[in-house]
């Protein structure tokens, strides 16, 4: 347990690129807070001792300087300090959002009181997550019941996991080792037992580990089967190629190939990015964001599909979407 070693540590292990950013801001804030605390302490203790009752120190009116100017001075100083801190913290966060590269995508499903993960090749884990060192990771998370929160202290990251919605978490493990995974949002009786272990391995070890897992079919392959068995292909065309009326399908439905990641104009004039959340919503609440030019005919699949099935369908649509659509 290299990540948990040490006798009474004062600082958690830092095992991700994000941890460096967070720790830098924490150190700055610690320094500044320490300075302000020391200043207040010196003022209060210094004045309290110097101006204790009956002490010989000079009293009388306040000097010119310590009138309203000093008040305006420290108001401006604290405001400036606050704004600087905000600017730094905010730009660090924005910078992190901007550097979005290709990442290893892992689907995480939370439920009372366990974590389930599925790797791109279909390998599944419960209350454990194996990751290669040095590769960006993107978790797509959803909950089957109440709100949970995915928290790995060594990575300095946390993200609530909600029912009925996909939340994302990106990070970049930089150190190998075993680290705690906690549920950080109170979720019921065994909240304190909703623990897991995140194991970061060298990429070679990770590849061997993954190869040794009993492979599932892969989310997208399973999703393709669902796409056919649920009848999606009937309107959207086999393979999600989309269809025009009269070309083998009875209803005109949007083309799904090449859709993922594109901006979709909607019937009400808005434009949305076709990401996981949009695809998911369109399966469960098709009437909400209707693509421009199509009739809102699609029935809702809410209640018919489990969380896992929706995940598989979305994974399939993504895979179809990233390949150039046929006939384009």
């Amino acid at each position: 347990m290299s990540g948990l070693s040490g006798w009474v540590p004062l600082w958690p292990p830092a095992a991700s690129a994000e941890a460096g950013t967070v720790d830098a801001i924490v150190l700055l804030l610690l320094g500044l807070s320490g300075a302000v605390l020391l200043l207040v302490l010196c003022l209060v203790a210094g004045f309290a001792i110097r101006y204790r009752r009956g002490s010989p120190a000079k009293r009388g009116a306040l000097p010119e300087l310590v009138q309203s100017e000093v008040e305006i001075g420290w108001t401006a100083a604290t405001l400036l300090l606050a704004l600087l801190l905000f600017a730094w913290a905010a730009s660090a966060q924005l910078g992190e959002e901007r550097t979005q590269s290709d990442a290893l995508e892992i689907h995480v499903t939370a439920r009372q009181w366990m974590w389930k993960a599925q790797h791109p090749n279909g390998a599944r884990e419960i209350n454990a997550l194996h990751l290669p060192r040095g590769e960006p990771v993107r978790l797509l998370m959803t909950s089957e019941d109440v709100i949970h929160s995915f928290f790995v202290p060594a990575f300095r990251i946390k993200q609530d996991v909600l029912p009925g919605r996909v939340t994302q978490l990106r990070f970049h493990p930089t150190e190998t080792g075993e680290f705690h995974l906690f549920c950080a949002e109170f979720c019921g009786t065994l909240h304190a037992r909703m623990l897991g272990t995140v194991t970061v391995m060298e990429p070679g070890d990770y590849a061997r580990w993954r190869a040794a897992q009993p492979e599932g079919d892969g989310l997208a392959r399973e999703g393709a089967a669902l796409f056919v068995s649920l009848g999606c292909a009937g309107c959207h065309g086999a393979g999600g190629g989309g269809s025009e009326v009269g070309v083998g399908a009875t209803v005109r439905a949007p083309r799904l190939a090449g859709l993922y990641g594109r901006d979709v104009p909607l019937a009400d004039g808005r434009v949305v990015r076709a990401d996981e959340a949009y695809l998911r919503d369109s399966i469960l609440q098709p009437g909400r964001d209707v693509a421009a030019g199509y009739a809102p005919l699609m029935p809702s699949f809410a209640g018919l599909l489990g969380e896992g099935e929706v995940q598989r369908l979305v994974a399939y649509l993504r895979e179809r979407g990233e390949q150039p659509g046929e006939g384009r």
Binding site: V40, L43, V44, F47, A48, Y51, R52, R53, G54, A57, K58, R59, G60, L62, V66, V70
Partner: peptide
């Protein structure tokens, strides 16, 4: 803090 300045503190 500054209310203490030049006070007669008990």
């Amino acid at each position: 803090s500054f209310t203490l300045y030049r006070g007669q503190i008990s």
